[in-house]
Structure formats: C-alpha cells, structure tokens
Design a protein around this nucleic acid. Sequence first.
DNA 1: ATATCATATAAGTTCAGGCTTATATGTTCA
DNA 2: TGAACATATAAGCCTGAACTTATATGATAT
Lengths: 104, 104
Amino acid sequence: MNPKQMERYLKTIGDQSRLQLLKALEQKPLCICDLNTLLDVSQPAISQHMHRLKSDEIVLNERRGRWVYWSLNHSHPYYFLLLELLKVLPVPTIECSEEENPCK
Amino acid sequence: MNPKQMERYLKTIGDQSRLQLLKALEQKPLCICDLNTLLDVSQPAISQHMHRLKSDEIVLNERRGRWVYWSLNHSHPYYFLLLELLKVLPVPTIECSEEENPCK
DNA sequence: ATATCATATAAGTTCAGGCTTATATGTTCA
DNA sequence: TGAACATATAAGCCTGAACTTATATGATAT
C-alpha cells in the first residue's frame, strides 16, 4: 500500500458522519431510511456517504425489495482495525422498528 | 471519545505527506531539514505538518541547538494503532548524514 | 398501469485545509 | 554585535469534499 491509498482510506473513514454510520452498522445491517434517523442530514447525504464507503469496500449492500440493506464488510483488510476505532465511540440511537420508523 | 474527536485524529494522520513523515519518524527522530529531503514540498509546509501532528500529540519535539528534533509520541493512546497502519507503508529515503544533507 | 415509497444521481454552494511566498523568530558562532 | 542558518508564522490561493435541493430510477402493490 502506498501513502496515497492509505490517505484515501483514512479520509473515507475520517468523517464524523460516516463514523456514526459505521458504528450503527457494527450492531446490525440497516437500510438508508434507518440510517437517516441517526444523523441530522438529508437522505441524499446518507446515500452519498454510504456509496463513498462502498467504493472503498468498507461496506456491502444488498437490495431487499424496496430497501437496500448495508452492512460492514468483514473481509476488508482493515476490518479489525476499524472495529478497534469504533470500540470507543458511543452506540448511536437508531429507529428501525415498524412503530418508530414510518418507512417500514 | 466522540465522533468529532475521532474525525479530527483520522484527518490528522489521513494525509499522504503526514503519513510519510510519520513513517520516517518511526525509524528515528529527525529535524525539519532532514524531513525536508523526503517530500517535495517547501520547508514551511513540513513545519506546518509537524505542528498539526503535535497539536494532536501524535509527535513530540525537542530543540537541540539550532535544530528541532521530532519523534513519535509512544504514549499516544493510538500509538500502536498508528504503527499498525505504518507497517504497510514503504520506508522513505531520508538524507540526514553530514555528507548528504547540507543543513548539518 | 400508475401511485407510492425507497434510493440514487445531478448540479450548485460553501468551507476547510494543504500548499505557496514572504517574512519573523530563535540559535550559534565569528 | 551581526551574519548565517534552522524553524515558525502570516497571508493568500486553489482544490476537494460535504452538504443542499431538485429530479431520476427502481420496486411494490392496488
């Protein structure tokens, strides 16, 4: 790995919004509308963050009907290093039950 | 640690110039003029990078006469995580002997 | 088929930060 | 003391990226 590639990886995870999204996904796979209850930004912003993470293969996604579910890529070379970083972050509050999140 | 603080740390190390500077310091303490032979940027740029790293306590510095020597801070909470990242980077070529570097 | 809902893409704005050059500060030594 | 050298600070430029709103795409279900 060269410095430029490592910079790219660190810039991808080095964003407070994406760190919170990753922390939420550490618990379980979630769709965009679940993740949208976590941060105070627009739906396109969430989508853009997730695609940035995907372009670096840090997360995986899978469509299930109308929803696209996102999860951590356990096979990423820095998956364990990422877990080490996420360890010290607070678990965010996500609303993903039918009663709480109107998207279900 | 909150997401904003972690973002700050990752942004500090997530720069290809600073990664190369850190990799060089992993080998041994060096002064600005040594580090200046490593990257193709100006002396003020090196100085600014080092002060950014110092403000996050990732490196330490110590004046010895005209020179200021910089070293990794082994007591930083993420020192070992940093070593893990630096492990995969190539060791840069630094000129710091009297013959090679005119600053000595 | 078409309305509805979830997600993605496009385009534009704003702001942080990494560089530059110019200059100031600090140290040594004749 | 002042010249020479190492480093730091100041100010300005330019690019990338993190948002926004508007709109397009894709899937389900009536």
